[in-house]
Design a protein around this nucleic acid. Structure first.
Length: 946
RNA sequence: GCUGAAGUGGUGGAAUUGGUAGACACGUUGGACUUAAAAUCCAAUGCUCAUUAUGGGCGUACGGGUUCAAGUCCCGUCUUCAGUACCA
């Protein structure tokens, strides 16, 4: 084995690492720790494509580099193995999702192993394994057993809440809870039945069961969270979604809204991602204002409308109110005369899907209820309307309409001929509303006249508070997260139902394992798939699962039929890696103390409002309750860009079986067809035979070729996907060029964070670099190993140290693409010098090792070392080798670079001025004039002002 | 609409953060080696004018500005991408 046989070399070292457990991390070490994590993959049936490993390669380079730098590195990997695709595959084929998931994991592992990652596989976790989801269930129970105190901004055990209730009731309590909680005294509480107490507590628990309006996807037979819906259809499959009321588990994430927002300042995450999260949380400051409904009938006694507004300062501009069609008061306040109109309108809006409503922004629609509200200050009667521009889900589902200050209110008022009073000084509102807070001076508003936005807001809130008709309020867009899914392949809830109330299974009996079912579809009665399980009841005497027919509602109770959503298993998994086999706790305190939080996390930005937000929420909760020692999961996060596919299109003449080459299309009516990219070479020529044999419909197709007889396809950049036939498998690249080439090439493609299309066009350049590197250590036709012990030349040392310095900077800045160039330059320069000195070639192998670990292990081994290169310290660059005796100084004159001058490095400013002045060429450019000054930037450039 | 990021050769992309723009690679062209091809090696390659040669002009989306010096900083305009959207 003398030539660069990458296949043998890579296999050899991958086996070596596995056998020697080279990358197993220890939980005790004198070294500083570093935790590098990738977002773990969902093992899909399609396997990995070249886009998946991009982030893994980057994090692997960083992990390997940190090991060279003397860190104890934790770099684990696992599988997010619960999920919908496996379940849908199960529905189609009847195969158990456990089986297909297992197969997919094996396939993923094979593919990952071929790329030479330095994962510590002894710590692997799988979210679908009972040993793991035991902890997901355990966390769920802790959330159930907790409430959130707003006074302390912290979660506490529910037992403390019970104590507060029994001692002083709930009137003084400042806790996060459902909006309709009524106040009670300690005496009242103590008199309540157990069931009533339970149902009150449920309104305070951090995970709770409630009738909520949810996004129901009939096609998938399940509810979806807001972030699982894109443009009104399901993210998976693109099926329609409708609103529906259902009894669901929810997570009280809204309790943590402010802390989730504040925490963003403490973490080093990309700005766009932070912005996405803070938009999603959507904090807005304003006031709650209560409007009394004018009592025109007994029915309306005590009726009030609460609104949220960010502009309480414009309250004197209110000329009508608008309720969402779904608002609970609509039914009650609508007058007899308007009943028919209102009913018609509500029916019409209910029929329209969310999507239609969004597409129809321009159309103004609404209807008058016939009722009036009373202005808190003027007592004026304000008409109450219904309009679908008001969303039931935001604020209170009602607005005080100030047409002069809000464009939507303005348009609505214009459309229905409602007055538009102007309450701004010196502003023309005849054409449009005026919404500039900064330039606002209030007028025509009684005690607010002449005030600016800020002062007026403050003053009006005080006045409202005095009247008991309002208060300052911060509102969030963030909703509580629905946590129930009507699916089979997810974590079962550790919950059974006694007398209609949910009960937790004691934590010592976890995990509650997923039952077997015959089919993975919902039942005929519409219950979730777990409704098919025959053994799915909880025996509270023996504390075990038992058959449904034994349910007696005395000691044996039905278990929850829903399962948890995809993000349940991924919210705290980073802590399980710290101590993955611990049977007693999620991770031991010792392990958590040592590893802290994730130092570097790599993954796609598509998880911004799901996994990354929910994970932060759970971690903060676990921190509050003392189960974790940190309140943010991840210190630094990098979003790697997606690698896109370059789809190939063959064009077929419409209605004919004629296929037209790219340049012959014009003028023809053609239909593009995705062709498999493996039939196309780099100059876009199609392998016509392969295409003919691809599908029977093309067997007899006629090809209209280019004039030279070739057939060309057109290209388009799209997301890589099986259905677009543009998927490139990393295995093929590893086979043809090797894993080291794949690793280097994926980095070389461009900046890590940027999306970029995959193209093999440049891969030969990277591959030939590795061949050159190999040749540097070998010589002769036989390429025998040839490294000598002769001392290195000064030039060689300079190249080496320049390279060390640059590569170190690049890795620290995560600009892995430029260091590949740096290696290429170094190898080219050293080859030109015919360098074969061990003094150079040994450190060179180390600095390349993080990027191309297999070839460097092989070279390291040939250099006579028996240990793995991955444990060797990274070479230190030394400034002294970079220093030159003299340097070319570019000389600028009147802003233009004129010529370069060789000057000694240690020259002072005066020396340089003198040297420049003495220089013959300077005289030539100055042309007899005296320069005003000579500007010297030390070590850089000399500039003469003429 | 709002928020954020970005705009550099034929292509992917560099540029030590204000100091010789286009590193490195692909592609293209020419050459060497070959019966030939592949592989490999060498040279040229931003555009443009001119030439025997040295050279000149223009160039980092567009228009201004600051500076001895701008891809980089400031103001304005345009375009692209991403997130979000009747959020009161």
């Amino acid at each position: 084995m003398s030539k660069y046989h990458f296949i043998d070399i890579e296999k050899k070292w991958q086996n070596y690492w596995a056998e020697n457990k080279t990358f197993q991390a220890q939980n005790q070490s004198d070294k500083p720790k570093y935790y590098v994590l990738d977002m773990f993959p969902y093992p899909s049936g399609a396997g990995l494509h070249v886009g998946h490993p991009l982030g893994y390669i980057a994090s692997d380079i960083y992990a390997r580099y940190k090991r060279h730098k003397g860190f104890n590195v934790l770099h684990p990997q696992g599988y997010d193995s619960f999920g919908l695709p496996a379940e849908q595959y199960a529905i189609q084929t009847g195969q158990h999702p456990r089986k297909t998931t297992q197969e997919n994991i094996i396939r993923y592992r094979e593919q990952l192993d071929k790329i030479g990652f330095s994962f510590d596989w002894s710590r692997e976790v799988r979210t679908s394994s009972p040993d793991y989801y035991k902890w997901t269930q355990w966390i769920f129970i802790q959330l159930f057993e907790s409430w959130y105190c707003k006074a302390h901004e912290k979660a506490f055990p529910i037992s403390e809440l019970v104590k507060v209730f029994s001692e002083q009731g709930n009137s003084k309590l400042n806790a996060e809870c459902d909006s309709e909680v009524t106040t009670f005294t300690a005496e009242e509480w103590n008199d309540y039945s157990e069931k009533r107490k339970e149902s009150i507590l449920l309104k305070y628990r951090l995970t709770y069961l409630a009738e909520t309006e949810v996004n129901w996807c009939p096609e998938l037979g399940t509810v979806l969270a807001n972030d699982e819906i894109v443009n009104g259809v399901s993210e998976r499959g693109g099926y329609p979604v409708v609103r529906k009321k259902m009894m669901q588990w929810s997570m009280r994430i809204t309790a943590y809204a402010q802390r989730l927002l504040d925490g963003l300042d403490t973490i080093d995450w990309p700005q766009p991602l932070k912005d996405t999260q803070s938009n999603w949380i959507g904090k807005s400051e304003g006031a709650m204002v209560t409007f009394r409904v004018v009592r025109t009938s007994e029915e309306l006694r005590g009726a009030k409308i609460e609104v949220f507004t960010t502009r309480p300062d414009t309250i004197f501009g209110v000329s009508f109110m608008t309720l969402a069609p779904e608002h609970e008061l609509v039914e009650r306040i609508t007058t007899m005369e308007q009943r028919f109109e209102v009913g018609k309108y509500i029916e019409a809006t209910a029929k329209r899907s969310e999507r239609e409503r969004m597409a129809d922004i321009k159309n103004i629609s609404g209807v008058f209820t016939g009722a009036y509200a009373e202005h808190p200050f003027t007592g004026e009667h304000i008409p109450i309307w219904i309009g679908d521009y008001v969303l039931a889900g935001y604020g209170t589902g009602a607005v005080m309409a100030v047409p002069c200050g809000d464009q939507r209110d303005y348009d609505f008022a214009k459309h229905y001929d409602i007055p538009i009073p102007n309450i701004f000084d010196g502003v023309d509102i005849s054409e449009e509303a005026f919404a500039d807070k900064e330039r606002t001076i209030i007028g025509n508003s009684d005690f607010l006249n002449g005030l600016d936005h800020k002062t007026a807001t403050q003053k009006v809130i005080e006045a409202l508070e005095e009247k008991g008709q309002g208060a300052g309020k911060i509102n969030y867009r963030l909703r509580d997260a629905v946590f129930s899914r009507q699916r089979y392949w997810g974590e079962p809830f550790p919950v059974y139902y006694k007398d209609g109330m949910p009960q937790m299974i004691a934590t010592e009996h976890l995990p509650l394992t997923l039952p077997e079912v015959e089919k993975y579809l919902p039942t005929e009665t519409g219950a979730p798939p777990l409704g098919r399980a025959e053994v799915w009841a909880w025996d509270t005497v023996n504390n075990e699962i038992t058959a449904n027919h034994k349910i007696d509602h005395e000691t044996i109770f039905p278990l929850e039929l829903n399962t948890m959503p995809g993000w349940a298993g991924s919210s705290c998994y980073m802590f399980r890696y710290m101590d993955p086999h611990n049977p007693d706790v999620l991770a031991s305190e010792e392990a958590m103390r040592y590893w802290g939080n994730v130092d570097l996390y790599l993954g796609g930005s598509e998880h911004a409002t799901s996994h990354l937000l929910y994970s932060r929420f759970w971690v903060k909760f676990m921190y509050d309750r003392g189960y974790l020692l940190v309140d943010e999961p991840v210190k630094k996060l990098i979003n790697q860009g997606m690698i896109l596919g370059e789809s190939a299109f063959v064009h077929r003449v419409e209605g004919e079986n004629q296929l037209v080459s790219a340049s012959k299309i014009s003028g023809l009516k053609v239909q593009p067809i995705h062709a498999d990219v493996s039939f196309v070479n780099t100059s876009n020529e199609l392998d016509m035979e392969a295409f003919k044999n691809w599908r029977p419909e093309f067997k007899n197709a006629e090809f209209i070729t280019e004039d030279d007889g070739t057939f060309k396809v057109t290209r388009e950049v799209e997301k890589m996907s099986k259905s677009k036939y543009n998927v490139v498998n990393p295995d093929d690249i590893c086979e043809q060029y090797g894993a080291d080439t794949l690793r280097l090439y994926e980095m070389f493609l461009g900046p890590l964070e940027q999306a970029k299309p995959w193209s093999t066009a440049g891969i030969t350049g990277v591959h030939s670099f590795l061949k050159k590197l190999w040749k540097l250590y070998h010589s002769g036709a036989e390429e025998s190993f040839a490294v000598s012990d002769t001392a290195a030349l000064a030039d060689e040392l300079k190249i080496l140290h320049k390279t060390i310095k640059k590569v170190e900077e690049d890795i620290e800045n995560f600009s892995f693409n430029t260091s590949v160039s740096t290696f290429m330059i170094a190898v080219n320069e050293l080859s030109a010098l015919k360098c074969n000195s061990r003094e150079i070639l040994e450190p060179l192998a180390i600095i390349i090792a993080p990027y191309a670990p297999h070839i460097s292990e092989e070279l390291w081994n040939k250099l006579g070392h028996s240990e793995s290169i991955s444990t060797v310290p990274f070479p230190q660059f030394e400034e002294k080798y970079l220093v030159e005796s003299s340097k070319d100084y570019p000389i600028s004159f009147n802003g233009k670079m004129r010529f370069k001058m060789k000057l000694p490095l240690d020259m002072t400013k005066d020396d340089i001025e003198a040297a420049v002045m003495a220089h013959e060429k300077t005289q030539q450019y100055l042309d007899g004039r005296t320069p005003k000054k000579v500007i010297i930037v030390p070590g850089k450039i000399v500039n003469i002002v003429g």
